[in-house]
Amino acid sequence: MPFLHILLLALLQGMTEFLPISSSAHLILLPMLADWQDQGLAFDVAVHVGTLSAIVFYFRGQLKSLILDWTNSVLKQRHIGDSRLAWAVGIATIPVGIAGLFFNDAIEFMLRNPLVIATTTIVFGILLGLADWWGKRRRDEHQLRWLDIIIIGCAQALALIPGTSRSGITMTAGLMLGLTRQAAARFSFLLSIPVILLAGGLKTVQLVVADSPTDWMVLFSGALFSAISAYLCVVIFMKMLDHIGMWPFVVYRLILGGVLFWLFL
């Protein structure tokens, strides 16, 4: 891969993975619009490893607490500290895991096209705006009820459809259920850790089975650039979220969807 392709794709993955604008849509669209050769499965794995390492580093302190408290809660059979939040992350991951197992190949084959992306970009962008407008924003992630957790988990499963945005749909569901913007974003980011692990694991298995040649320098560069851009993006997003809200991303999604309809209809 040319270095410019590596840099732009990795930066794009890092910047869009945690924003409510769909990283998968952008990674599909950039090579398509620029007439580049597909980046390949190995590169997809590498940039996902980069974004995963970024979010783990960002939540490094809380993740240690979540793991320890969850382990103690299993041993003592009662909630301890942040164990309830750890259980919430695990339970909310189940729907997307099941959906990915049964429908991922069909979705990849049937729905990976610009008009689907344009539609989902606009529809779920409008829902994000409405949730940000109507949401009561009174609770944090520690106050989620079990039904709330299941609803957010089921919403996350919709993100298998290109253009939906995993972070966007989970933040939308969180805001509709009364979470603050910060809480909806934090819970969405925590949910990304097992999801990226599952997706990356699946792609890694596919990569091993394919037994294709590997350019390790390309993969390392992609992982590094995506990690740096993802971490900086999360830091800036969390600092600015309460000031700007979700509407800049809603407007961006509407413009992007409109441009895609104009180009491909």
Rank of each mutant, 00 (worst) to 15 (best):
I107G: 01
T121P: 04
M176R: 07
K136M: 03
A159N: 08
G40C: 00
S212C: 00
Q37N: 08
G97P: 07
L207P: 02
W134V: 09
L115V: 13
I21R: 08
A199R: 09
A173P: 05
D82E: 15
A86E: 08
I196M: 14
T71I: 12
A34I: 01
C154Y: 04
R138G: 06
L7E: 10
L177A: 10
D242T: 09
D211Q: 13
R253H: 09
V96E: 01
M176T: 13
P20D: 12
F109Y: 03
F261V: 12
P162G: 13
W247L: 05
M32P: 00
L68S: 13
M238Q: 09
R60V: 10
F59K: 11
G153K: 03
I236H: 02
A46N: 00
H79M: 14
H48R: 06
R145K: 13
C233W: 01
K76I: 10
I21Y: 07
I244D: 07
G163W: 06
F18N: 05
T51W: 14
A157V: 04
I151G: 13
D215Y: 15
A118E: 13
I117G: 12
S23R: 12
R112W: 06
R78D: 02
S221P: 02
D140H: 05
V74A: 11
A118I: 13
W70Q: 00
G222H: 04
M217T: 10
H79I: 14
A88T: 08
L232A: 09
M217P: 00
L128Y: 04
V218S: 06
P20E: 11
N113G: 12
F187S: 04
I196P: 06
S65P: 03
S23D: 12
L177I: 10
A227W: 04
F187I: 07
F3Q: 06
G125I: 11
S65W: 11
T204W: 14
T71W: 14
